[in-house]
Simulated assay, not measured.
Amino acid sequence: MALWPLFLNNQGRLIHKWKHYFPAYERHFHRYVTRPVTFLEIGCGEGGSLQMWKQYFGPLATIVGIDIRPECSAFEEDQIHVRIGDQSDETFLKAVLSEFGTPHVVLDDGSHIMEHIAATFGYLYPRIADDGVYMVEDLHTAYWEEYGGGYARPGTFIEQCKHLVDELNAEHTRGAVEETHFSKTTLSMHFYDSIAVFERGATGTKFAPQIGTR
């Protein structure tokens, strides 16, 4: 099932998404379609995206939305669960994971505030499935002061991602960058306009064979 037509033909609750996000969604989420996936969306908006993900992933999916606004509880329906709390509160996040289990996919479309994004990522990323996907969208706010952003400003999630690129390659830095849990459990990082995606996994033993004749 293609995601873009679901969006265009939506007759349910309001969905507000950037058009250029959809190819990234398809690329990174498609392998979970019709599987028993637990999909965690941070930020419920008007409730339409929760319904879209339910349609996209299919009848085996568990869709969990979290939001700080109590009125979002009204978005609950079959397969869709909403929990009210602060996305940067580890106690709240722990309770969500205890209730619904390990998420396969996390989509951060929450407050877009740099401090919140970093806190949520720091807690949730090590706790998603070993082959899971973590996507942060609307990262243009990393350049906007009202969200704690600014070009090359220390502490923004974009600047954190730049450091994480080095962590991903830590094994090759000859000791300049220490290997971390992130280094050892992250298969890849992907960047799009306003989006960062992290795919968990491991490359296994690394070697560079030479095959063929000269």
Rank of each mutant, 00 (worst) to 15 (best):
T120M: 02
G101W: 02
V133H: 10
Y151H: 05
E99R: 10
Y143P: 00
G150V: 00
D131C: 10
L139M: 10
M114W: 00
A119Q: 06
P103H: 09
Q160L: 08
G110F: 15
K162I: 09
H104P: 10
R153I: 09
G132I: 15
D130C: 13
E99I: 01
F121W: 14
F157S: 11
E159F: 04
H112W: 05
Y147S: 11
D108K: 10
T102H: 09
C161E: 15
D138M: 04
P103R: 09
M114G: 00
T156Y: 00
D131W: 07
T102K: 07
D109N: 12
G132N: 15
Y123K: 08
A142S: 15
A129C: 11
G110K: 06
P103S: 10
E159M: 12
M114Y: 02
V133M: 05
H140I: 12
D131P: 12
A142D: 10
C161G: 08
Y151G: 05
V105G: 14
M135Q: 04
G101D: 06
C161F: 14
Y151L: 11
R127Y: 08
Q160H: 04
W144H: 02
L124Q: 08
Q160V: 11
G101L: 04
R153D: 05
Y143S: 07
H112G: 13
Y125S: 14
L124E: 08
R153P: 15
H104I: 01
A142Y: 05
Y123V: 05
S111G: 04
G155I: 07
Y151C: 02
L107T: 03
E159I: 13
D108R: 14
Q160C: 08
G101Q: 05
Y143R: 11
E137Y: 04
I128W: 14
G148M: 05
A152H: 08
V106D: 00
G155S: 14
G110N: 11
T141V: 01
P126L: 01
G101R: 03
M114R: 03
